[in-house]
Design a protein around this nucleic acid. Structure first.
Length: 883
DNA sequence: TAATGGTAGGGGAGGAAAAAGTCTACATAT
DNA sequence: TAGTGATATGTAGACTTATTCCTCCCCTAC
């Protein structure tokens, strides 16, 4: 009996027949590969299957079966189950059937997943081989090779000890630009281990000898050395910073160039390939997991920048060695000290990538999601929600004899796309009562959409179509009808019930658990339950989903809108308190109460009252209390928040939603000063201190006392620069950087940091790279930063408090700030010169209202009563010189 | 082998369109 | 009194300069 955790599953074809391979790892750290032979691919179809497939030799058998249909209440159908010999022939047969008018079902399930779902196992899950004989094969690299006939899923929460290898490569460039794997060799490879390998924590491979460096006579031999290292250390996980899109494709291409077979995985025959898909590479390594720290951090952390230096500093508080790309060649060719520096730089990058993955436990969430959905961890890492949901649903639907539809065709997708744009409506957002509110309590619905699905039994399998007669039909506000639970509980409501209950159970255990390792696992588990539960609504409104249905998606959201509006009016009617804001599943209620105990009680009373009126498991909860609440507009507010922390205790914090402090596309100066001002306003309620702080910031900016770093604005490049319709500041900079040095210019998906420099014309034309500004000593456009960055957001905050722009800038001891800004930066017209040549004057200008006159009107003064000065393009003057 | 969960909403920058202000040439009145 | 030049004033169209409105884009709330 062998027990192990599933790392990867694939299949090979032996004598035209598939053999499933399950790569795994035991608790003892031993690797295993199990071979399973007796599983044939199959799918379903309706229509004239016999006629269409005729005597197709691939078909093993065709059986008649009765299946439940996913879409529509109580729909059964007679289908044919088609079993074939070779899984790779499935697409061909599927297309042939579809082309002849038959409808195929489950004909696009990858064979490995078909197998896993049928025997009830999945990615990162534990399995037990009841009986297995040793398999005589050299095709795979694992400690144990077993022919399995009986595989069972077992329940175990811990993870097997997984070996991680982090690596990083350095290469030179013949052109001085981006290294090209067709011409430019790899010069250094660093590798770091989480479990010491041959007594070492890391190694460096190179073609140049040096201290603590394993050197090789040629690049080819070094690459072979790297493959040997991977083989000997035998990691389960390969990581690095951007290995998916740089190091791995590069190394693989170099191996091709040098005629070294790139066998990085655990199969001796399958070569690794890096395919370029939509500007991104996709690398396959059999039997191992590629977990790129860069990719994961980009998905899981919202940061202003994602360079390794920034990320390491921010998340690990560790420093990246400072070597610029342009220095690599010099250090590589230069003296031993420089070479050592380069090698250590390379090693350090691997260490940082390893630390990110292990210290931040980047994989925990993905492991939990894999275990829950049954998806292979590599797919969980590389793909989106869809693959997880569809795999999960296939399993659950199959359990109850349902047959799952195939992916929609391209035309179907386009049709759906069109109708959805106008028809799928989302949540309801209440217009906020702008201003400053004291004592506001926040009530929100616990998992609103999943609860709606459960409470109204919303599911494709309960959807009533046509004039079907069912008792106690549930009708959603949009008109969609569903069979009640008494008739049949929908599959998805059933799944959600389980997910939500399991989550509660895990959270309970989490409270009691003291072992930190187990705590982590439980935490990831409960998180995965929540993520999965929340993903169903979005999935059913997703045009590429197999179970897409607009009526269903709309039934969910329209119910939500109705509930939130009823909640608002019920609270206002029955409790006499005003609802000042709300968004989708929450209401903010203004109460006149200061005592925490009483507030808590009021919140509970209101929630209980509303909850009682609602069907099913819908539940309104008292979540928190805002001592002060400043809504500025929909989805934008700040609040001084108090949350119950149990035992009558409260935790306190400032909450900021949607405003510039939480957005990454504003400069640090704005975020910082806004944060400070908001704290002063909320906690001290001192308007004067806030305005004077603000004036201070502006003065500093005018005196150039602000660090340029604080003025950097960052934005993501979302597509290639040519594809932008109009001009955009960050894109214009990308174009400039490209022209300067194509190899270091930001690409799609990267965040660009820029500052605005002084000059004329569009902002887009004045964007510049901060380091370039420092290097060339360019001047920052302080006026832009005052008028376009600092002022607008702060004005909005102060406007809520009733402080106008002129009060903000003009009042108080620093009288004349506005004049200072203008005087220093506006056109010369503002500074009156004493004399001008008469030839240059163009007319007269009123000294008080600045109205221009080509001639002095007869009344001798402006219509506002002001006196005149001479006006010219150069400025204004009291007198003219006649010469 | 291209893969991708949903809608609501604010707000900046650019750009087009509409609006307002200026300029110029010319007519008319004094 | 008619004709003339200088000056003031008005007006239409050309040209210039703010405003306004809309779209694209990014990012966030839920």
């Amino acid at each position: 009996m062998i027990e192990f955790q599933v790392i990867d599953v694939d299949y090979i074809t032996v004598n035209e027949r598939p053999v499933i391979r399950i790569f795994g790892k035991g608790m003892n750290g031993k690797t295993i590969c199990a071979f399973y032979e007796n599983f044939s691919p199959y799918f379903y179809a309706d229509g004239d299957v016999h006629g269409i497939l005729g005597d197709e030799p691939q078909v093993e058998k065709i059986e008649k079966v009765e299946k439940n249909m996913v879409m529509g209440f109580n729909r059964k159908k007679e289908l044919y189950k088609i079993t074939l010999k070779n899984p790779s022939k499935t697409p061909e047969l599927r297309e042939r059937l579809a082309a002849s008018g038959a409808t195929p079902y489950e004909a696009d399930i990858l064979f490995g997943y078909r197998f896993m779902n049928d025997i009830g196992i999945g990615g990162m899950g534990w399995v037990r081989l009841e009986n297995g004989n040793g398999a005589a094969t050299n095709t795979v690299r694992s400690a144990q090779k077993v022919k399995a006939t009986e595989i069972k899923r077992i329940d175990r929460e811990e993870d097997a000890p997984l070996k991680v290898l982090a690596f990083d490569i350095e290469c030179t460039s013949s052109t001085g630009g981006l290294p090209d794997p067709k011409d430019d060799p790899v010069i250094l490879i660093s590798a770091v281990f989480n479990e010491p390998h041959n007594g070492k924590k890391s190694v460096i491979l190179s073609t140049r000898p040096g201290p603590d460096i394993t050197s090789y006579p040629s690049e080819k031999e070094m690459l072979e050395g790297f493959l040997d290292l991977v083989k000997d250390y035998d990691p389960d996980i390969i990581t690095g910073y951007n290995v998916n899109n740089f190091d791995l494709p590069y190394v693989i291409e170099r191996m091709k160039q040098q005629r070294v077979k790139p066998i990085i995985g655990r199969c001796n025959e399958k070569q690794s390939m890096a395919k370029k898909i939509a500007n991104r590479y996709k690398v396959n390594i059999t039997g191992r997991i590629i977990a790129d720290s860069f990719d994961i951090i980009k998905k899981d952390y919202s940061l202003t920048r994602y360079g390794l230096d920034f990320v390491a500093e921010k998340l690990l508080n560790e420093k990246k060695h400072d070597v610029k790309h342009s220095e690599i060649e010099k250090l590589w060719q230069g003296d031993i000290e420089g070479y050592k520096k380069l090698a250590e730089y390379c090693r350090n990058d691997s260490i940082l990538a390893m630390n990110l993955l292990t210290k931040l436990k980047l994989l925990d969430k993905y492991i939990a999601l894999s275990k829950l959905s049954g998806t292979l961890i590599q797919d969980t890492l590389n793909s989106g929600e869809t693959i997880r949901i569809e795999n999960f649903l296939l399993r659950e639907f199959n359990k109850q004899n349902y047959v799952y539809p195939c992916k929609p065709s391209q035309q179907e997708i386009m049709k759906r796309d069109k109708e959805k744009k106008q028809e799928l409506k989302g949540g309801f957002v209440l217009e906020p009562e702008k201003g400053v509110h004291s004592s506001v309590l926040v009530l929100d619905f616990k998992s609103m959409y999943p609860s709606i699905i459960r409470s109204y039994n919303i599911c494709p399998t309960t959807l009533i179509t046509g004039d079907m007669k069912v008792e106690n039909i549930i009708e959603a506000p949009g008109g969609a009808k569903f069979a009640p639970v008494e008739a049949r509980m929908g599959i998805i409501p059933g799944i959600l019930k389980q997910l939500m209950e399991q989550r509660q159970a895990v959270k309970k255990r989490l409270k009691k658990e003291t072992d930190p390792v187990k705590k982590n696992i439980l935490h990831a588990q409960q998180w995965a339950f929540k993520i999965m539960a929340n993903a169903f609504y979005g999935h059913m409104g997703y045009v590429r989903a197999k179970i897409y249905n607009l009526d269903i998606a709309n039934a969910i959201t329209s119910s939500g809108r109705e509930i939130i509006q009823k909640t608002k009016s019920d609270i206002e009617k029955n409790f006499g308190h005003k609802v000042v804001y709300g968004d989708t599943d929450s209401v903010m209620v203004k109460v006149d109460e200061d005592d925490m105990e009483k507030i808590s009680k009021m919140g509970d009373e209101m929630s209980d009252y509303i909850t009682k009126q609602l069907p099913g498991c819908l539940e309104l909860e008292f979540e928190k209390y805002f001592k002060r609440f400043l809504p500025m507009s929909k989805k934008r507010y700040v609040a001084w928040k108090f949350e119950p922390a149990g035992e009558g205790k409260w935790t306190e914090d400032i909450e900021m939603k949607g405003i510039e402090t939480v957005r990454r596309d504003w400069c640090g100066l704005v975020s910082d000063s806004m944060r400070t001002i908001i704290e002063i306003i909320l906690k001290k309620d001192d308007e004067k201190e806030a305005t004077s702080y603000f004036k201070d910031v502006i003065s500093k900016l005018l005196r150039n006392e602000i660090d340029v770093e604080k003025l950097v604005i960052t934005k993501t490049v979302t597509k290639s620069p040519e594809r932008y319709a109009g001009m955009q500041p960050h894109i214009e900079l990308v174009k400039k950087l490209r022209a300067r040095n194509p190899s270091e210019a930001p690409g799609i998906g990267d965040r660009v940091g820029y500052v605005i420099t002084k000059g004329t014309g569009l902002v887009s034309g004045r964007t510049e790279d901060p380091s370039y500004v420092a290097e060339k000593g360019l001047e920052i456009d302080s006026k832009y930063y005052i008028e376009n960055q600092l002022l607008p957001p702060l004005e909005r905050i102060f406007a809520v408090l009733g402080v106008s722009k002129s009060e903000l800038l003009g009042n108080g001891k620093q009288m004349g700030l506005l004049e200072a800004i203008n005087g220093k930066y506006n056109k010369a017209t503002e500074s009156a010169q004493k004399e001008l040549p008469v030839s240059e004057t163009s007319g007269f200008i009123c000294k008080s209202c600045r109205k221009f006159y080509p001639r002095v009107p007869l009344i001798g003064s402006c219509e506002c009563g002001g006196g005149f000065a001479f006006s010219s393009p150069k400025g204004i003057a009291e007198r003219v010189i006649v010469s």
